[in-house]
Write a protein that binds this DNA or RNA. Structure first.
Length: 433
RNA sequence: UCCCCGGUAGCUCAAUCGGCAGAGCGGGUGGCUGUUAACCACUAGGUUGCAGGUUCGAGUCCUGCCCGGGGAGCCA
């Protein structure tokens, strides 16, 4: 029995006969030789068939095989400079598993966004999409390892929730038995704030849902977020943690995902600069930068996508903008003791125009203060009863943040739109495939 | 919800001032001794998003609708 091997390991089998199980993503032929381009999930390789070594019928049959035929081939591995990837397989036997019943719709030429999105279930087979998902895989593993090594405890938060996260109006609701409406979670933060009282350092990692009718390259209705929360951490500790997480994740990806970054043509020199410390500028300084850039910005305005780009372009690594006006931020953020018009929060803006990837803050930890803020914001007290409860028994100062996985992956991979950073994106006008 | 752009062959696009709907890729047939989105020749392929209007004549102009894309707001 000849050994079944994966393409990523092929260099270990030079001059040996091996079996590859995969798919033919392209082929080229002349009268005397076929070049079959194969993939198997781990990589890509060229297999060749010379006419003189096969009977005419089989040779003709292979010429007519359609793109995406699944097949099992056996042959001798050879180092071959003329082959893409540097190795090729001289086929000795070929067995098709399934021959396509129609022509494959995704061609080697360019396609439009609409067509590709309609065929997302097939599009993920293409090399570029494959590389992006392999990088996402590395990014997620790096994040989990960072938290594990830093002694954080994974506390998964519920997806179905009765309470309200940051603001109503952009929640998906569903009928929940006899209890009325339930909502798809838009943050796990409130649950993490409960968990730190037991575990100290916690994080959660899962899908979140926003029913905002956003139509931009930075938004999805369903996206993955990693959130961390730490007891006794103050604002500055929080920012340091964010910075360390991002540096760790980028370095690990550069180390482990180099071949995939190359497939995407990513200019990795722009990632090599991602080292501590990240620049930190106050919201007020950010407004000054925007004014200098000729923007009509004044204190109290929120910082939009274009503004984020102007700010982040001044730096070669992510920049942290801290202490925003309280009126444009969430109710649970701690007021700045040095300026009660501001809250102790920060947004991390990725370079190259990728915008906000992290939002974090120190949380209000005193019962009376939080109660007052809930009332000021006219939030339903009943829904927040348990959240207030946390502050009754041994409350401590604490801080946390959330990082958007697709935005992070989009930045690291250098792709234009975050819909390619998730296998099956959910956008406002698309629920299939 | 608002602003902007688009919808022509399976796909990507072209079509001058309103005047015979075209090309490349993909498909089919044949050819080619190492291809690199292979190449060469021939060939089939159309309700121009839908409905109405103006006109001798509409892919092109007008009205309404449908679908998608980019952005704003909001956020990660």
């Amino acid at each position: 029995m000849i050994k079944w091997v994966y393409i990523e390991d092929i260099s270990k089998y030079v001059d040996q006969e091996v079996t590859i199980k995969g798919w033919m993503y392209n082929k080229r032929s002349s009268s005397k030789i076929h070049f079959l381009q194969l993939r198997d999930g781990t990589g890509f390789i060229q297999a060749i068939m010379e006419k003189e070594r096969f009977d005419d019928e089989l040779f003709k049959k292979v010429k007519k095989l359609k793109i995406e035929t699944s097949m099992i081939i056996t042959g001798r591995v050879r180092k071959e400079d003329r082959a893409p990837g540097g190795y090729e397989i001289d086929v000795t036997s070929i067995e098709t598993v399934q021959e396509p019943i129609e022509d494959y719709p995704i061609s080697k030429k360019e396609h439009g966004v609409d067509f590709l999105m309609e065929h997302r279930h097939l599009w993920i087979r293409s090399k570029k999409q494959w590389a992006i998902m392999k990088i996402r895989n590395e990014v997620v593993k790096a994040i989990r390892d960072f938290f594990y090594e830093s002694k954080f405890v994974l506390i998964d938060s519920p997806i179905l929730t009765g309470s309200i996260g940051e603001s109503a109006g952009n929640l998906f609701d569903i009928d929940y038995f006899d209890l009325g409406k339930a909502y798809l979670s838009q943050t796990g933060q409130l649950y993490l704030e409960a968990a730190i009282q037991s575990f100290g350092k916690v994080y959660c990692f899962g899908p979140t849902f926003r029913a905002e009718k956003s139509k931009t390259r930075r938004h999805l209705t369903e996206f993955w977020m990693v959130e961390a929360e730490v007891a006794y951490y103050r604002h500055k500790d929080n920012m340091k943690l964010q910075e360390e997480l991002v540096v760790y994740t980028v370095n690990r990806t550069l180390k482990n995902a180099q071949p995939y970054l190359e497939i995407l043509g990513r200019d990795t020199t722009k990632l090599l600069t991602v080292k501590t410390p990240f620049p930190r500028i106050s919201y007020s300084e950010a407004i000054d930068i925007l004014k200098e850039a000729g923007k009509d910005a004044k204190w109290g305005d929120d910082i939009g996508g274009d503004e984020e780009t102007i700010i982040s372009q001044k730096f070669d690594r992510p920049v942290m903008v801290y202490n925003y006006p309280k009126d444009i931020k969430a109710f649970y953020m701690q007021l700045n003791p040095e300026n009660d018009r501001e809250v102790l929060c920060d947004d991390m803006l990725a370079p190259e125009g990728y915008g906000e990837i992290i939002g974090g803050s120190e949380r209000i930890w005193k019962y009376e203060v939080l109660l007052k803020r809930i009332e000021e914001n006219n939030l339903p007290l009943d829904a927040y009863r348990w959240y207030l409860d946390i502050r009754k028994w041994g409350a401590v100062p604490h801080s946390g943040f959330g990082m958007g996985i697709e935005r992070l992956v989009a930045w690291i991979t250098g792709i234009k739109h975050i819909r390619e950073a998730i296998p099956f994106p959910r956008t406002i006008y698309r629920i299939y495939p």
